[in-house]
């Protein structure tokens, strides 16, 4: 493993901390803190400030919070105008409506205009749960990844969410960040600093690399434990910065471990699995298996059941790892 790559402090730990945090909650709390440090931060929501957690900011900074009502296109356009006027707008709603209903507003004004708008959307993926298919955004990352100028982030735990939110406030340019409902185990400690275009290695191993995004980073870590029991050393990488992707790390992992599994709570088309496959097919082809949803919409149910139903568990990742190793 070349020292060039960021190896998370997590490696030094025996076991992850027992605490659990939800990415949307940590976003909301961090935003309220950032409000004090950055007088130019303004926050917009579309009648979901409780769900997206922008309510914490709204309570403290009443004159810098704008509820745009149930009007996501207007939400994005207004955020764009605020950015043009020198503000640092954070616009939040559900991932489905932010990237679906208002995709064209994001494309035409925020991305094309390269505006300093931060779109932080909650409720990505099937772990939305009971609300079902209409509310489970499985396409949002693909829709954002194809846009020039856009940075696309999916934090995997609380500290990473805090670091990314903080980073986004300081960065000049459009950012999309997906948060989720589930409380996730804490991976990083609070010294974690996010760097644009860098993934992090969470576990060393030479037989296969498990590349995860968001919730699925945790499935990859568990899968590595399962595989270790069978004498397979799996490397685990968190590619939380989906765009720009850490292609050097991706290629290095392919070269050093010879097989790759990607895992994401998203369609297999368009996001992490696609991005990794694109890079490897051009630069260093190795056997790849993509874990994600295949040509299907979500359904209602408890998040854990849905992860199982759609083949998004640690056991699924481990099984995929064995398959790619066999194809080496």
């Amino acid at each position: 493993m070349s020292l060039f790559f960021k190896v998370a402090k997590y490696l030094a730990r025996e076991k992850p901390l027992s605490a659990k945090e939800s990415t949307r909650v940590e976003y909301g709390k961090t935003l309220a803190k950032l409000g004090e440090e950055y007088p130019d931060i303004v926050v917009l929501d579309a009648d979901l400030s409780g769900s997206t957690q922008t309510k914490h900011f709204a309570q403290v900074f009443k004159d810098r919070f704008f509820n745009m009502g149930i009007a996501e296109q207007d939400l994005m356009g207004t955020a764009a105008g605020l950015a043009l006027g020198g503000k640092i707008p954070f616009a939040s709603t559900f991932a489905m409506f932010a990237t679906g209903r208002a995709w064209e507003q994001i494309r035409q004004t925020i991305a094309y205009g390269n505006l300093n708008v931060k779109i932080v959307a909650s409720h990505g993926g099937v772990t939305v749960g009971e609300d079902g298919g209409s509310h489970q955004a499985l396409e949002d990352l693909a829709l954002m990844r194809i846009l020039p100028n856009m940075v696309v982030l999916v934090p995997a735990d609380g500290p990473e969410t805090r670091a990314m939110t903080r980073w986004a406030a300081a960065y000049q340019g459009p950012v999309y960040m997906r948060t989720g409902r589930l409380a996730l185990p804490v991976i990083y400690d609070d010294s974690y600093r996010f760097e644009l275009g860098r993934g992090s290695v969470l576990r060393l191993g030479g037989d296969v690399t498990l590349m995860g995004l968001g919730v699925m980073v945790h499935a990859c870590l568990e899968a590595a434990d399962l595989l270790a029991g069978a004498g397979i050393a799996a490397r685990v990488v968190n590619l939380s910065c989906l765009k720009p992707l850490d292609w050097e790390l991706v290629v290095a992992c392919a070269r050093e471990t010879g097989a790759v599994v990607t895992a994401e709570e998203h369609m297999v088309a368009g996001a992490l699995g696609s991005a990794v496959s694109e890079i490897l097919s051009e630069h260093y082809p190795v056997p790849v298996k993509r874990i994600g949803l295949r040509d299907t919409f979500g359904i209602s149910g408890k998040p854990e059941l849905l992860l199982k139903h759609f083949g998004l568990t640690a056991a699924d990742v481990a099984a995929a790892a064995r398959q790619v190793i066999a194809r080496k």
Binding site: Q73, G77, T78, A80, G81, Q105, Q108, L115
Partner: peptide, 23 residues
């Protein structure tokens, strides 16, 4: 700001108006 896809300019203007007020 780029325009051409119809229907979007008034929202952008509103954002600018809010920013002018805050500034």
């Amino acid at each position: 700001i780029p325009t051409g896809s119809l229907g979007q300019g008034l929202s952008i203007a509103n954002g600018l108006a809010l920013a002018a007020r805050l500034n």
